[in-house]
Amino acid sequence: MPATPVEGHVVVAPDKFKGTLSAAEAAARIAAGIRRTVPGTEVRELPVADGGEGTLDAALAAGFARVPVRVTGPTGLPVDAAIAVRGDTAVVELAQAAGLARLPGGRTAPLTAGSRGVGQLIAEAVALGAGRIVVGLGGSACTDGGAGMVQALGARLRDAGGAELAPGGAALRGLAAVDLSPLADSLAGAEITVACDVDNPLLGPRGAAAVYGPQKGAAAEDLVVLEEGLTRWADTVTAAVGRDLREVPGAGAAGGVGFAALALLGATMRPGIELLLELLGFDEAVRGARLVVTGEGCLDAQTLHGKAPAGVAAAAARAGVRVAAVAGRLELGEEQWRGAGFVSAVALTDLAGRPGDSTARAAELAELAGERLAAALLAR
């Protein structure tokens, strides 16, 4: 028999369960389980993201309008992407234009993949009159230092022969001259804010190439080439703008797009989940709530270092609202997840009957997780 509803609404704010459920799908399924267990309780679905893949979908679910844009993908082929717009604010997701998922056939191109499409998305936002542009970094397929992005916004990058520099990180080794003057006009005074959850510098053993190059297909010899290219890029940009930002935490984000955003677009950088929760109106949504439910594909040690569920938990705690978690897998001990602020945590793997079921039956099990949490935390 369904439980009697309690006073106060419930906010369901998960990130994506990578490979199985989008954040919106996870929110809908968990919410369905809660509604079935405590009918009459108001449940508000607010899928979230931390600045990487899913950022656009989170903005759309929060009421932003989708604007389709055809841009240049990471290997130069056109891809169909989109930006999200509400009022004078636009949300750009790098992965829409230059993400690993945009690689044709999944074939990596570590030396030649570029970020031109990201600049094209920003240009479209400016053309639509956006005064504030939020750029979510994450899932990048390129290590070009953001050179392609600024080329799309009008910057002229030349090699020793005066030709326009080719796409990709390897080509940066041949950079001889830059003309950055068109950038200011192309941005038309728009304020750029970067949503970023990594603190890597541009260069060195913790830099864009060394840390993230291998996951983009770079072999050991490729990493040397990319590091040389990024070094040449940093030296040239520093000489042109009169300040050196290569060591700024986050400069190495998205293959160095963070560096170009900071040094050439005048961007400010903020933690992804913090910025997204602000954009999505989380503080308003949680006011007066009885419970917040968040989650992601795997609740693990990385979750505790700025991932979406930890950000949601912190924001809920500031509002004085209890928060519970649903995860595909739970790799934290109870002491750890309780220490992160969660009053309860349910793993789909624990609800699955057989190995593999937590993936194949993720939607069904997410509903069951919602039921379990509602019965334990919301029933009278």
Rank of each mutant, 00 (worst) to 15 (best):
T349K: 15
V292P: 01
W233M: 09
V92P: 00
I30E: 01
L153Y: 02
L137N: 02
G288F: 08
A82S: 11
D283Y: 13
L299E: 02
V257M: 15
G311A: 12
T20D: 11
G320W: 13
V198G: 02
A90D: 02
T41H: 10
V326G: 01
R116V: 00
G138W: 02
G204M: 09
A289S: 15
E228D: 15
V237N: 04
A379H: 12
L373K: 07
A375P: 01
P271F: 12
R107F: 12
V237G: 05
A171W: 04
Q120N: 07
A113L: 09
D300E: 14
A62N: 06
R338C: 10
Q96C: 15
D15L: 06
G353R: 15
V178T: 05
D57H: 05
V194K: 05
L100G: 04
V178Q: 03
P205C: 10
A375C: 10
L378H: 06
A184C: 06
A13P: 01
V126M: 11
R86C: 03
G281F: 12
S140E: 07
K307N: 07
A352W: 15
E371Y: 09
D197S: 05
L230P: 01
G129K: 09
T303D: 08
A195N: 06
A345Y: 06
D197L: 05
